[in-house]
Simulated assay, not measured.
Amino acid sequence: MQRRTKIYFPELADSFLANYVAGEYDLDDEQVEELHRKYPERRHQFWKSFASLEIGYEFYVSQYSWIVPLESDITELLQKYGGFEDELPPFEEANYLSILNYKPLVFNKTSVVFFPQEKLFQTQTCARDILLQKRKDKYYDIQDFNQEIKEISLAKEGNILIVSDKSYQYLFFRDSLEKVKYENVEKYLNIFKGLVGKPTEISCPWHKLNDEQFEELCYHIICKHYKPGKEIRKMGKSRSRDGGRDIEFHTPERLGTDSRKWIVQCKLIRDGSSLTGSKINNIMDTIAQYGARGFCVMTSGVIDSGLYDKLDNIKRNYGIEIDEWSKLEIENFLDKHHELRDKYFFD
């Protein structure tokens, strides 16, 4: 009977394997093909986690999603290896919405994100190949693999999505989920009113805040939304800085993804105008100076299309993670966290 070696640091072993899988194409074509026959998940940039030995069942991870057996306890898995040191965010059943040629959405009572259609297809294709390898049946009909979605759950903060079919549960994390931007909301607003049941009058009196108070509010939002733990810093008084970075934080590490450093710029707008690209300068210089892998802008105004384009170009051309919080996202967040809203906008 073959004895399995105990892995004392599965996170470290997974980090090594992630780099190996990403760089295995340095091998010649025959070696790569042989490796993929033995480990079909690696063809799709997935690997079987070393934590499978400790948790008691096989599950597969990539940089953007996990593949987990249907009967497995998601709560235990996320608490051990998902980077959630404190409490796990509550999940709610989510609705899927597709309108005409617009990107489909998933939403629950508190959050809405774009549905990761392409990433789900890639993940389910990997799951199919894993099942084919397990059954070792050359005559197994691929059509027998039922990819019909049976259940969708979304975390309260919109940072974890779980999609289930008849074979597996697929977990997608915040860095692979695209938030709905302010400019897209009008397309779905009438449907939101009927199905989501969110109030439309949730605007905040931004004139009550000064720059320092707004940055403090952003700091508390980051703590609740990203769960960075102790790895978060607010850079002194707002007027004493050059505006390059207002807040700095690190996302928690999870299997398949290392901790990432983020830079946040906070822009308080009290007159109802838009935040334009000209008001956010030298983004790449700031990112390079502080060695960040993510950039976030938070504003009490509307983000105009020019700034969205600028940020999208940085994400596309440099591989930097981008997140934007306009007044809509912030006000929706505060509508879910009345303790923060009351602290900064008391009567």
Results as ranks from 00 to 15, higher is better:
Lys327Arg: 15
Gly272Arg: 07
Tyr170Ile: 07
Lys187Arg: 12
Ile160Asp: 07
Tyr57Ile: 14
Glu30Asp: 15
Asp144Glu: 10
Ser72Met: 11
Met235Arg: 15
Leu189Val: 07
Gly306Glu: 06
Ile152Val: 13
Phe333Thr: 15
Ser176Trp: 13
Ser62Phe: 14
Phe115Cys: 08
Leu177Glu: 12
Ser326Tyr: 09
Asp271Tyr: 01
Leu132Gly: 00
Tyr102Ile: 01
Ser49Met: 07
Phe346Ala: 06
Phe50Arg: 12
Lys261Tyr: 04
Val106Glu: 12
Gly294His: 07
Lys343Cys: 01
Lys109Gly: 04
Leu161Ser: 06
Ile7Pro: 00
Thr257Trp: 02
His250Asn: 11
Gln31Thr: 03
Phe16Asn: 09
Lys327Gln: 05
Met235Val: 03
Asp137Glu: 14
Phe16Tyr: 14
Phe115Gln: 10
Trp47Thr: 04
Tyr226Ser: 00
Tyr308Phe: 12
Gln289Gly: 03
Glu212Gln: 13
Ala51Ser: 12
Asn313Ile: 03
Tyr168Cys: 14
Lys179Pro: 02
Arg254Met: 06
Glu76Gly: 02
Glu71Gly: 05
Lys279His: 14
Tyr64Met: 14
Pro252Gly: 03
Phe16Lys: 07
Leu131Asn: 11
Leu27His: 12
Lys150Val: 00
Tyr96Gln: 10
Leu177Met: 09
Glu231Met: 04
Phe16Cys: 05
Ser278Asn: 10
Leu154Gly: 01
Pro10Ala: 04
Glu329Phe: 01
Gln213Pro: 01
Ala51Val: 05
Ile263Asn: 12
Leu275Cys: 04
Ser15Glu: 13
Glu231Tyr: 04
Ser274Gln: 13
Thr299Ile: 06
Pro89Trp: 08
Asp271Phe: 00
Ile152Arg: 11
Ser305Lys: 15
Val32Phe: 07
Ala22Ser: 15
Tyr102Val: 00
Ser278Arg: 08
Glu85Pro: 02
Ile149Lys: 11
Ser153Trp: 11
Tyr168Leu: 09
Tyr39Lys: 15
Cys218Ala: 10
Val180Arg: 08
Arg270His: 02
Glu33Tyr: 09
Ile191Val: 12
Tyr81Val: 04
Ala292Arg: 11
Ile74Pro: 01
Asp29Ala: 07
Glu324Thr: 12
Pro252Ser: 06
Gln124Leu: 13
Ile222Gln: 07
Arg270Phe: 00
Asp342Leu: 12
Lys267Tyr: 07
Lys227Ala: 05
Asp323Trp: 15
Ile247Ser: 03
Tyr188Val: 09
Lys138Glu: 07
Ser259Arg: 09
Trp66Ile: 06
Phe46Lys: 13
Phe145Thr: 03
Arg233Val: 00
Phe333Trp: 09
Val264Asn: 08
Phe173Pro: 08
Asp29Trp: 09
Asp309Ile: 08
